[in-house]
């Protein structure tokens, strides 16, 4: 009897997991399809980042900043560019649903956790694309020497993930408020601040040639705890 139930239970559990994954992918695909119609987020992120980098590069001169000062300053500038580009483009993921009044349809058709993961995946690909664009241009424009590129890549991956997950949750909150655009920065910056401090520290280590130290596990722990709390809080934020 016990065996029979477990055998019976298995396919249905698998079926629901498959259904959940299909929902996640459906949300992800829908978001990119909408994005390619207007290219709002792509244009904003890319142009914002490029403009800022050009301004910085011109101000710092044709050969960049000298090595000792550069290692101190440039990691901070890199993460400031990433943070501001993200806050210009990512909140769109949820604001657009409220503005075009598709939020209710989405509430009816998708499970909250699947929706959160789908949106997160969309934000993650956006942040990943942004980092792929920004980092090489930044490194070449600023004449930045990176001593341990592996650590830089790891930091960008973990930091980018943290930026995406924190912003996704805060975007879901502010999309339902009145003053959406300005409120995102006000709410997101204190949440993302620990992440940025850790990411800047690790980027500095990558440039100056130090190890990950305790900062890398802390960054991963930040990512994990924000993901867990995001999955727990999102249904509350999303469903009235």
């Amino acid at each position: 009897m016990l065996q029979a139930t477990s055998v019976l239970a298995k396919p249905s559990a698998w079926g629901s997991a498959e259904g959940w994954a299909a929902e996640v992918i459906a949300v992800f695909v829908k978001d990119w399809r909408c994005e390619f119609r207007t290219r709002y987020a792509l244009n904003t992120l890319a142009l914002f980042a490029l403009t800022t980098m050009v301004v910085m590069s011109i101000s710092l001169g044709p050969i960049g900043i000298d090595r000792t000062r550069g290692t101190k300053v440039l990691p901070v500038l890199l993460w400031v560019i990433l943070l501001f580009s993200v806050s210009a483009g990512l909140p769109r993921a949820f604001i657009q649903e409220e503005e075009s009044q598709t939020a209710t349809a989405l509430r009816l058709s998708a499970t909250p956790s699947a929706l959160f993961c789908g949106k997160l995946l969309y934000c993650l690909t956006l942040v990943g694309a942004l980092e792929l664009l920004v980092t090489p241009v930044f490194v070449t424009l600023m004449n930045l020497e990176v001593i341990s590129p592996a650590l830089l890549v790891g930091t960008l991956a973990a930091g980018g993930y943290g930026l995406a997950v924190g912003s996704t949750l805060v975007a879901a909150i502010i999309a339902q408020a009145r003053t959406k655009g300005t409120l995102f920065s006000v709410l997101a910056f204190p949440v993302l601040l620990p992440l940025l401090l850790l990411a800047v520290e690790l980027t500095f280590n990558a440039v100056a040639g130090g190890g990950g130290g305790v900062a890398l596990p802390q960054l991963l722990l930040y990512d994990a705890s924000v993901t867990v709390v995001g999955l727990m809080l999102f249904p509350v934020v999303w469903n009235p």
Binding site: A177, P190, V191, L197, Q218, S225, V229, V236, V237
Partner: peptide, 21 residues
Amino acid sequence: RLSAAYAILGLVVTPFLYWIM
């Protein structure tokens, strides 16, 4: 609903500062 969610998010995020700072 929204502010309760934000307050709980703060409870999770701010302790990191006490390790980092």
